[in-house]
């Protein structure tokens, strides 16, 4: 990508990316009770990274985020599968999820659900796969 003088864009991006990332994490965490969840959270994260690519160019971003997104996708799928196996260990069918209510010191009465772990896998897989696709395509010159 060429290097135009786009100071405003770059500055705005810095703020926007932080907001989008925070929002994506919020979407992800609130997914169990409000609109959101692994897919949306993951995709919003992807949107943030894509914005970075658009503004700063691929090489620069890859240097600063040295993550192989193919591995992220693979890890995501593995996490989801293993949470499923977890259900089997406790004698339930594959992919059976469980949840408990736990009293945490700061948060008060909080719900712990294995479904969240599964959702983490989903989110990672979505992030990894989508970014792999986008980076591959934009890399092909």
């Amino acid at each position: 990508m060429k290097e135009p003088n786009d100071v405003i864009l770059k500055t705005a991006t810095k703020a926007a990316v932080v907001i989008i990332l925070a929002f994506s994490i919020h979407l992800f965490l609130s997914g169990h009770h409000n609109p959101g969840g692994g897919f949306i959270g993951g995709l919003a994260f992807v949107a943030a990274v894509v914005l970075l690519y658009l503004v700063h160019g691929i090489e620069k971003v890859q240097k600063n985020i040295p993550v192989d997104f193919k591995k992220v996708a693979g890890i995501g799928v593995l996490i989801s599968v293993f949470t499923g196996v977890g259900g089997m260990i406790s004698g339930n069918p594959f992919l059976n999820q469980a949840f408990w209510m736990v009293d945490l010191p700061l948060f008060g009465k909080t719900e712990m659900a294995t479904a969240v772990l599964f959702d983490v896998g989903v989110a990672l897989a979505v992030i990894g796969a989508s970014l792999t696709i986008i980076i591959s395509i934009s890399d092909d010159r």
């Binding site: 997914g31 169990h32 959101g36 969840g37 949840f99 479904a115």
Partner: peptide, 10 residues
């Protein structure tokens, strides 16, 4: 059943 209030997500 699943401890979730967002049915679609559940």
């Amino acid at each position: 059943l699943a401890g979730a209030k967002n049915i679609v997500n559940a």
